[in-house]
């Protein structure tokens, strides 16, 4: 994670001329996306392996072509199996956004710190950090509940 961010923020300017270099924020975004994609792909792969061969055979015997089979038969089941793991990964990614601090961008926490550094800022430090904590909690908790809802939807696990 950190190494990808460093490549994006420090190495890329060494290779690319100023004019072609995207904004630092965009580079961080791409780095996070690549990182998340690799993790999510691995989770989905786990789900695909959980689908018994009989499902492929049944779909094949009905004449469904490969991509139709994936879309209509395999993926709906595979994704369902990995909903808990997907939720985990996504919540970790939400919290990982704080790491962009190391390349000098402001995440939620560092924005809070910056605000505290402002002498005009009225509220005490504890309040600021509690509020940031509440935002993280709200994001993670609501996503966990959403995953729970997805898991309960549809047929009972067989």
């Amino acid at each position: 994670m950190l190494s990808i961010l460093f490549v994006a923020s420090i190495m890329m300017p060494l290779f690319l001329p100023e004019a072609l270099l995207p904004d630092k924020f965009v580079r961080a975004l791409v780095a996070l996306t690549i990182f998340a994609a690799a993790y999510l792909a691995e989770v989905i792969r786990g789900g695909l392996q959980a689908i018994p061969n009989g499902q492929y055979e049944a779909a094949a015997s009905l004449g469904l072509p490969f991509w139709r089979t994936q879309r209509l038969v395999i993926l709906p089941q595979a994704i369902r199996v990995v909903i808990p793991a997907l939720a985990n990964t996504i919540i970790v990614m939400i919290k990982n956004t704080s790491l962009i601090l190391v390349i000098g961008l402001f995440d939620l926490i560092s924005s809070g710190k910056a605000a505290l550094a402002d002498p005009e800022w009225p509220s005490p430090a504890a309040e600021t950090f509690l509020f940031i904590g509440a935002i993280f909690f709200a994001l993670s908790f609501s996503f966990a509940r959403f995953a729970d809802f997805l898991e309960r939807r549809g047929p009972a696990a067989h």
Binding site: A58, A59, L62, L64, V73, H158
Partner: peptide, 27 residues
Amino acid sequence: VGMVFQHFNLFPHLTILENLTLAPIWV
């Protein structure tokens, strides 16, 4: 060519009716 398997191999995420209509609709 229809095939019936030892372990049924129905699609567990679809209702019975959806199991039956899947191939006629898409194939």
